Simulated assay, not measured.
Amino acid sequence: MAVLNLRSLPGGRILRGSQPFGMDTVATAAFLELHGIQTVVDLRSGYERTIVPWQLTNGAVELVENPLDPRIASAGLESIHTAEDLGELYVGWVRARPDWVAESLRPAAQGKRTLIHCSLGKDRTGVVSALALLATGTDRAAVVADYSASTAALPAMLETMAAAWRLAVPEIPEDAFSPSLMLLQSPQAAMEYFLGVFGHEFGSAADYLHDAGLTGAELDGLRRS
């Protein structure tokens, strides 16, 4: 198995992807070496990490556990029915936890080749990646395209994730990982909605990240990533 939905952001210092499906310590070490990863930023909750843990040897890389419960600042994940609902979920995260966004990007801003991931690598990872791209001057169309690129990887990932969760939580509903659920999709309209509201409320991503705690030097480092 592997880290799925894996790709680099422009500049190559930031990799984005899924959780490490079915990787033992040997496979994990080989993956990290292959991609030159110095820091892993894990955005999952502690409970998620127990189901699909990282199998890291001591000192292999820096592991930054920077969790965000996806239910934060939302009316409940079961209320996500449209692309706009999904985009509003993302808006709630950046309103509630600017510190979380900044800490997710700090290792890359300090010059480390960094893997940023959550479970599927599309929602929490997608929001952090979008702000990283905006802060480095990427145009909105390219940000939307990067987000929606997860669509092709989702069917295989959902099957793999469903198998892992059913092994750990046998009582999980059969349709919990149905690709028909909006929460498990990555439509362009969701990111377009998020970017529109973000720009209206916060202005530039660089200003948002500075207010969230990244220094000027770190923002310069992020632009060079």
Rank of each mutant, 00 (worst) to 15 (best):
A2G: 11
A2S: 11
A2R: 15
V3P: 12
L4W: 09
L4M: 14
R7I: 03
S8P: 11
L9V: 06
L9S: 10
R13Q: 07
I14M: 07
G17V: 08
G17N: 09
Q19D: 05
P20E: 00
F21D: 01
D24A: 02
T28C: 11
A29H: 07
A29I: 04
A30H: 12
L32I: 15
E33L: 08
H35Y: 15
H35A: 07
G36P: 02
I37D: 03
D42K: 05
L43M: 08
Y47T: 14
I51K: 04
I51F: 01
W54S: 11
W54K: 12
Q55T: 12
L56K: 04
T57R: 15
N58L: 13
G59P: 00
V61F: 08
L63D: 05
L63F: 10
V64G: 00
P67N: 11
L68V: 04
L68S: 01
D69C: 04
P70Y: 12
I72R: 09
A73C: 04
S74A: 11
A75L: 11
A75C: 05
L77K: 06
S79H: 15
H81A: 15
A83T: 09
E88K: 14
L89K: 02
Y90F: 15
G92N: 10
A96Q: 15
R97G: 07
W100A: 02
A102I: 01
E103F: 12
S104N: 11
L105Y: 10
R106D: 03
P107D: 06
Q110F: 13
G111N: 05
K112W: 00
I116F: 12
S119T: 13
L120N: 03
G121Q: 02
G121E: 00
G121T: 05
K122R: 12
V127P: 01
V127L: 06
V128F: 10
V128S: 02
A130C: 07
A132F: 08
L133V: 00
A135V: 04
T136H: 01
G137D: 10
T138R: 08
D139K: 09
V144N: 06
A145Q: 15
D146S: 12
S148Y: 03
S148V: 13
A149H: 06
T151R: 09
A152I: 13
A153Q: 12
L158Q: 07
E159V: 15
T160P: 04
M161F: 06
A162H: 09
A162P: 02
A163C: 06
R166K: 09
R166D: 05
L167M: 06
A168N: 01
V169S: 04
P170D: 13
P170Y: 08
P170E: 07
P170K: 05
S178P: 07
S178W: 10
L183N: 11
L183T: 04
Q185L: 07
S186A: 15
Q188V: 05
A189T: 11
A189H: 03
A190F: 06
E192I: 01
E192K: 08
L195W: 01
V197C: 09
H200D: 14
H200R: 15
E201M: 03
F202N: 05
A205I: 00
A206M: 02
D207Q: 10
L209S: 10
L209W: 06
H210L: 09
D211I: 07
D211L: 13
D211Q: 13
G213T: 02
G213Y: 00
L214R: 02
L214C: 00
T215Q: 14
D220F: 08
D220H: 13
G221F: 06
L222V: 08
R224K: 10
S225R: 14
